[in-house]
Simulated scan of single mutants.
Amino acid sequence: MSLSDAKLRAILGKPYQGKPELSDRDGLGVRITPQGTITWQWRFRWQGKPCRLSVGRYPDLKVAEARQLIPEIRNVLSNGTDPRLYWKHRTTQEGMPTLKDICEAFLELRAPGLKPGTVAIYRSAFNAYLFNAFPGKPVERITMSEWIDFFDSIAKTSRVTAGAMLKHVKAICNWAIRRQMISNLDVLQLRVSDVGSPSKVGDRVLTFPECHKILAELDKSRATTTVINSIKACLYSGARISELLKSKRADFDLESMVWTVPAQNSKTNLPVRRPITEDLLAILQQQWSLYQSEWSFPAPNEHRKPLGVASVNKLVREIRARMDIPHWRLHDFRRTLSTRLSEVGVLPHVTEKMLGHVLGGVMAVYNKHDWLDEQRTAYDRWTLLLTPAC
């Protein structure tokens, strides 16, 4: 039976020997002590377990007022937020989340739906800049001038980093607002140009003599074979280094000579199929003969794990320092493959497939063809171009 103010007034502040809990509706009810103290509570299930949330006392909160709270709290639950956490933030300033609180909540609740590499980027940025910013201060109490000072301090070292941190802050704050953890913030009005600079789009395209020099330096290197081979495979295939390092033997079908990058290893969240060229096959066969591992490029000292990108970047820095050519990085290999093959007549849709890109417009929706034969021909052309003239 639903509760009424008249019924609760008759109980309030008097010795009480009835049921300790009385139900109203929609999970709302009251808990009554033997002394007649009445507390509103809402019953719900969180992660499969029965829970209850105290939302106030009677008569501070009348029956109609208590009922009006339930849709708000139920909506929070349906959005995947623990109502107890939300209520604490809503009712006490001490419980209002700090920037670190919402960063941690983001990593806990959002991370399972993201790729490990993306989570690692967020975690690194949070550790370096956000976890220790504005310690103990509720994020809703941070003024615009404080935000600007914060980003300006980062911009003194790097305007690009300041812009990147603003993007991170806006992403997690918008997420927290949608989850009803916080209300709207002034910082969301800022643009990257207000506090820093956008990251630069690379434009470095290697010449073939430069590619030949890089391969020669790799051959002279005394680094671990798997690190050297991963860089060579990156140049020969035009694949992302992450796709290579996460590749397993099972991804390479030597019968059809096709390498399939699983969706979980692809930046586009779609499988990528490429032909296995002779150069790539030679590298893979050497790797498989040297390392008894499911990974094609295992860590040298722990074959049960894939090689880390830090080891690859370390070798890139070492050989780059010995070379008399302009600055380059691994990602430039992809731009070089696309540009140089276009120069010799390879069609754009073929090079896009070689790079693992999603085709634009209507083609992305209706055309699922991978052009493997055309890719194979283009890779043969690429191999010839990478071979130094005798």
Rank of each mutant, 00 (worst) to 15 (best):
W259H: 07
V258W: 05
P275R: 13
L280F: 15
P262L: 01
E278S: 15
R274K: 15
S266Q: 11
M257Q: 09
A263K: 13
L254D: 11
A263I: 01
L254T: 09
R273F: 04
F252K: 01
P275A: 14
D253N: 13
T260Y: 11
D251K: 00
W259N: 06
A250F: 00
P275K: 15
S256T: 06
V272R: 12
I276H: 12
V272M: 11
N269P: 11
T277A: 04
V272P: 00
E278M: 14
N269W: 02
E278K: 15
F252N: 02
S266A: 15
R273N: 07
N265D: 12
V272I: 14
E255W: 00
W259T: 01
N269H: 09
A250G: 00
D279L: 08
L280H: 11
I276Y: 10
A250K: 02
A263R: 09
L270P: 00
T260K: 08
R273I: 02
R274G: 09
A263L: 02
T268L: 10
E278T: 15
R274E: 02
N265Q: 10
V258Y: 05
N265K: 01
L281E: 15
W259A: 11
P262S: 08
W259M: 09
P271K: 11
A250V: 06
L280M: 14
P275M: 15
E278Q: 15
R273P: 02
V261E: 02
D279G: 03
R273K: 14
F252I: 11
D279E: 13
S256A: 04
E255G: 06
D251V: 00
L280Q: 08
P271C: 10
R273D: 02
L280G: 11
V258D: 01
L281R: 15
I276M: 10
V261M: 02
N269Q: 12
M257D: 02
K267I: 10
T268N: 13
F252L: 07
V272F: 04
L280I: 15
K267Y: 06
D279C: 09
T268F: 09
D253I: 00
V261N: 02
L280A: 11
L270I: 04
K267S: 06
T260S: 07
D279N: 13
M257C: 03
R274C: 09
S256G: 00
D251I: 00
P275Q: 14
T277W: 08
N265G: 07
P262M: 07
N269K: 09
S256R: 11
I276L: 08
A282Y: 12
E278W: 14
D253M: 03
I276C: 10
I276S: 10
R274A: 07
S256C: 01
T260W: 07
E278G: 13
W259I: 03
A263F: 06
T268M: 08
D279I: 08
T277V: 11
V272L: 13
T260G: 08
D279M: 13
V258M: 02
F252W: 13
S256W: 03
N269A: 13
D253P: 03
V258F: 04
M257L: 12
L270R: 12
P271Y: 02
L254A: 05
M257T: 03
L280T: 14
L270Q: 12
T277R: 10
T260L: 01
D251F: 00
K267N: 04
P271E: 02
T268I: 04
L270C: 05
T277P: 10
L254C: 04
F252Y: 05
N265C: 11
E255N: 11
K267Q: 04
F252P: 00
A250L: 00
